[in-house]
Design a protein around this nucleic acid. Structure first.
Lengths: 334, 334
DNA sequence: TTGTACGCGTTATCAA
DNA sequence: TTGATAACGCGTACAA
């Protein structure tokens, strides 16, 4: 094939050696079985020819692909870009590439993607689809991100949602708040569910101080906050399920003539970009998005290298970021 | 292989036909060359066995993969997630999957990724790396996003940067501004360069009213704005190279005791999320990120289908979004 | 240390 | 309409 893309045979011919020898010289793992002189000549020839191995052939032979599938709900949700970036960097450490797919939260779509990627001979999966009931690809190395499986046998990397909510509730309590509400995220999503459970455990609030948003979005947060206010609880602080919901709280409170934080303190979760610029700047919990992705990739690499490796469940620490949306409770509040 | 993953041979054996026949029956394009009875029996056997084709073998044979490489500088830059999302949806229309890679603006890294992906089974590339001097993979179908090649032979999809800058300058002119400055983005990036050129053409400003930021970032915008102000031009409006630079302008102006828009009007470019929430809300140019990605993917599919297809250069329209950061020039300004 | 030969699973070509 | 066979490029067991 002197015309098309060079193959290992072209490299071998150029050096006057057999393809098998060239293969051994090119592969770092088997390089020791070849004379130093031959190695350098083969490497040089490969460089000159611009040889790059045909991974279809390699995959066919070795049954591995050096490609991992990464499946998320929607890249436009600001929590995912840094996670995916971390995943990609972690995969790269091991020479892996990332095949990316969005599901829009549709389990059917997740199944399709999983099938398509498995068809492409993907070595493993990193799933950030966060529906608690999502299925995942059986028989393939898999790591969950931002979500834990109900059965404990699947490795996962998550932020410490419970600790974050506890820190928030403690902050509010220290500020004198006793009537704290919660606008929870969707309970079908593990993050929404975990934070809700942590809130209930930490705040001991009656049901009327809790509302559930239909989505982790500003609009859903807005609507849920209005429902919460209409239920008439006497609250001076709201713990939102995430930052977007918190911004929805801002809007809903403003529409009722309530000021943040003078009348009601509000907190978020995630510390996505620009929430430090809102007015008021949002008190929230910073989660290590990038590191979550990075660790997930490393965990996947470990599992691919040794499928019997322990199914670690890594929980990364979070950090409370106190800003202007939380303040001491006003004593004279009606 | 009755134990492992079923192959086409297992399917063929089960029906009692040859593997080649099973292949023809399974492939919709060649199905017409097989008797209806055989087709249905093969399909049934494939279903029962849970057969799924080994795409490594298929790629090796057909030299196609149904995978496209998508290379961007950094997913954490807010302009890229919606573009990548559009790309992915466009690829999906054609049954393609996306291999994603970040370069951090490093041409060397771009080369590595290109090589790795070309080595993987990749049918074509969508490049959003925006350095004007970046190389790209010769001989592979390629579409540029957010960037045009100096030579016109490479298809591209971009926003109409010139029209956007023209609209901004016209808006400012209509507001009475005559001394308009520009904090340009890096001139190594095509977006920074195009917008700078459009500004020069539209505003006819002397060099002292122009400063260049080292990066499309807030910090770089801050620093460049300070340099611009120190040069002492008598300006009442600043056209920033993009939204992040504009936010840097906000900070720099504030540090000099200048108010936006009372003292100086400021404009951005891109309309990334949350700039409508800044104070003041940023006047900017909205570019159709998602559609840019979508069209790029479709263009790539067309080029893969027919490499001789015309190298279209698609320029998508932009929209001026007028918000609170621009105001009529104060007559009493010093 | 190097060469030989085979097989991975699929599809395309050629014959029957 | 179907079967037989070769070839895609690589890695590796085995032989030299």
């Amino acid at each position: 094939m002197s015309d098309g893309v060079p193959t290992i045979k072209d490299v071998a011919d150029r050096v006057g050696v057999h393809a098998g020898t060239a293969s051994r010289a090119l592969n770092p793992a088997t390089r020791g079985k070849v004379s130093a002189r031959t190695v350098s000549r083969v490497l040089e020839a490969a460089r000159v020819l611009g040889y790059s191995p045909n991974s279809a052939a390699r995959s066919l032979r070795t049954r591995t692909s050096s490609v991992a599938g990464v499946i998320i709900p929607d890249l436009r949700n600001p929590v995912f870009p840094p996670i995916v970036r971390g995943v990609e960097d972690g995969l790269r450490e091991a020479g892996y590439l990332a095949l990316l797919g969005n599901t829009d939260g549709d389990p059917e779509r997740a199944r399709e993607l999983l099938a398509a990627m498995r068809g492409q001979r993907t070595d493993g999966f990193i799933l950030a689809t966060s529906r608690r009931d999502d299925t995942f690809s059986a028989g393939m190395p898999t790591v969950l991100v931002n979500r834990r499986a109900d059965s404990g046998s699947v490795p996962s990397v998550t932020a410490d949602n419970a600790a974050g909510v506890q820190a928030i509730v403690r902050l509010l309590t220290d500020l004198g708040h006793t009537h704290i509400g919660h606008v929870a995220g969707p309970q079908t999503l593990s993050t929404g569910w975990e934070r809700y459970r942590a809130f209930v455990a930490a705040a001991d609030a009656p049901a009327k101080r809790i509302a559930f948003a239909d989505a982790f979005s500003e609009d859903a947060g807005h609507a849920a906050t209005l429902r919460l206010l209409d239920a008439g609880p006497d609250l001076t602080a709201i713990v939102a399920g995430n930052d977007l919901i918190a911004l929805g709280c801002y809007a809903a409170l403003a529409s009722r003539g309530l000021r943040v934080p003078e009348d009601v303190s509000v907190t978020g979760f995630n510390d996505i970009p620009f929430v430090d610029r809102q007015r008021p700047a949002l008190t929230t919990v910073r989660i290590p998005h990038y590191d979550i992705g990075l660790e997930a990739a490393r965990l996947l690499m470990a599992r691919i290298g040794d499928p019997a490796a322990p199914a670690k469940r890594i929980v990364l620490p979070v950090e409370l970021v106190s800003r202007a949306s939380t303040a001491r409770r006003r004593e004279d509040r009606p």
